[in-house]
Design a protein around this nucleic acid. Structure first.
Lengths: 222, 222
DNA sequence: CTGCATCCGCTTCGATACTG
DNA sequence: CAGTATCGAAGCGGATGCAG
C-alpha cells in the first residue's frame, strides 16, 4: 500500500484506498464488467504490469476487488468488484460528471472507450425532449453495450445489457456510432448502408436521437 | 501539471485535475472556508510546502481554485474555491460517504478535524428518530461550526454557520464534544460543568442527541 | 497465452533549509 | 507569512523475461 494520509477523515480514508495512480480507473473498468489481467492491461493503456498487479492486490486487500479463478476449460483469473467496490460507483459517477467540464473536444490521440462516456450521456441528455416518454433503449456497439431508460423527463444511462424489455435496439459499430455523434454521418445513411441494424419503431429511434443529441457538444470541434 | 492519463474519459479527466496526491484534500479544506497558505499547511499535516505550492498553482490553472490578495492591513493571500471548484463538493461528499466504511475506530495518532466528519454525521444520522421533527441545530466547537437541518426524517449536515434561524445552539470545546461522542462524558455533566452552553429547549437538545447518536459507532473502541 | 517479477531510467514526493 | 531551493527517497513507466 502507498503512504497513508494518516487523517481520521472519511475522504482521506477513501483516498488511502483508491487515491493512488490508476486505482480508481481499475475500479472504473471493473464496474462495467469483470475482467482478466490482460483485459485490464489493454484498456488501461500505459499502466505497467507490475503496477497493475500491485493495485489489484491492494484493492483485493481492501475488500474492493475479488479475484476469482474460472474453471479449467477457461483457465483464467477474473477480477470483479465486491459489494463494497460497487458502492464506489456513485462517487465515481459524480466525479465523472464533474470531469465532463474538462473533456473538451475529442481530437484523437487519446485512448477511448464508449463506456467511459456513459456519465456524460446521462448528464447531458435532453430532459425536455424526454418529457412524456416512457421507454427503454439498448445500444450495442461492437462488444460494448449500454442502455437508456427514459421515464417522463428522467433519463438514466447504464453500461451493459438492459434487464428489462427494450423498446428499441440499435446495433452498430463504433465508427458509425461516433460518426453520428460527430455529425459526419447522417443516421439515415448509416441505416441504409447496412452498418446499423435498428429493431423497433423508426419514430422511436428519432426520439432517442433527440434525447441523446446534446452529447454532440462535447465532440464538436468548431 | 502531472502526467495525464491521456484518456478521453470524464473520470480520467477529473483525476488529471484532482487525482494527484493531496490535491483533493486541498479542495476539501477550501470547501469549508477560504484559507491562507499556512492554514492549509497546518491542516494538511505532513504536506511539503513546495508540494502545496505546486498543487495550488495547478488547481488555479485548472480553474478550481482562486488566489485572492487581501488589502494591505491584512497583508495576506487567501485561496478559495471557484464555482467550478465548488462543483466538486458533491463528488467529494460521495467519496467521503464511501470512505466511512474504512474509518474504523478512532485510536488517536491521526490528524483530526471536526469538519471532516460532516459527511459521516449526515450519512449516519438516525432518520427514524428524525421523523416528525422540523428543526435547525447549530454546533460551535472551538473555532469550527456546523449545522444540522432536520426535515421530517430528512437530515442535512453542513459546515459553517446556519443561514436560517436556529432552534438549538450548542457551544462547547472539542474535547467535550468528542467525549460525548465517545460516550465518556454524559451530556448532563458537560452542561453542568459549564463547558457547554446550550441555547434552546432541553427537550430539543435531547432529540438532537438521539438523531446524531449513531455516529458513536465509528468512535467505539470495543 | 495469461499473469505476473525483475530491472532500470525517469518523475514525483517528502523533509529540511532558506529567502523576499 | 508565503512561499522557493535543494536533494535523497519513493513511486511510476517501459522493456524484457519467464513460469504455469
Amino acid at each position: 500500500m502507498s503512504r497513508s494520509y494518516a487523517q481520521y477523515c472519511p475522504l482521506a480514508r477513501a483516498l488511502d484506498v483508491v487515491g493512488d495512480r490508476w486505482a480508481m480507473l481499475v475500479v472504473r473498468e471493473l464496474s462495467f464488467s469483470p475482467k482478466r489481467f490482460t483485459d485490464l492491461e489493454q484498456r488501461l493503456d500505459g499502466i505497467a504490469p507490475n503496477l497493475l498487479s500491485r493495485r489489484l492486490k491492494e484493492l483485493e486487500a481492501a475488500g474492493v476487488v475479488d479475484r476469482r479463478r474460472l474453471d479449467p476449460p477457461a483457465a483464467a483469473t477474473v477480477y470483479e468488484l465486491t459489494e463494497k467496490g460497487r458502492g464506489l460507483e456513485t462517487a465515481m459517477f459524480e466525479l465523472a460528471k464533474w470531469g465532463i467540464g474538462f473533456l473538451g473536444a475529442f481530437e484523437g490521440g487519446e485512448a477511448f472507450n464508449l463506456e467511459w462516456l456513459i456519465p456524460a450521456l446521462e448528464e447531458m441528455a435532453d430532459r425536455d425532449a424526454a418529457r412524456g416518454v416512457w421507454e427503454v433503449y439498448e445500444f450495442r456497439i461492437d462488444d460494448a453495450s449500454f442502455w437508456v431508460r427514459v421515464e417522463d423527463g428522467d433519463v438514466t444511462v447504464r453500461a451493459g445489457r438492459a434487464a428489462e424489455k427494450v423498446d428499441l435496439l440499435v446495433e452498430t459499430d463504433l465508427e458509425t456510432f461516433l460518426g453520428i455523434g460527430f455529425g459526419t454521418i447522417v443516421p439515415e445513411d448509416a441505416a441504409a448502408g447496412g452498418r446499423t441494424r435498428i429493431t423497433g419503431d423508426a419514430a422511436k429511434a428519432e426520439k432517442a436521437l433527440d434525447i441523446l443529441a446534446p452529447v454532440r457538444r462535447i465532440f464538436s470541434r468548431a
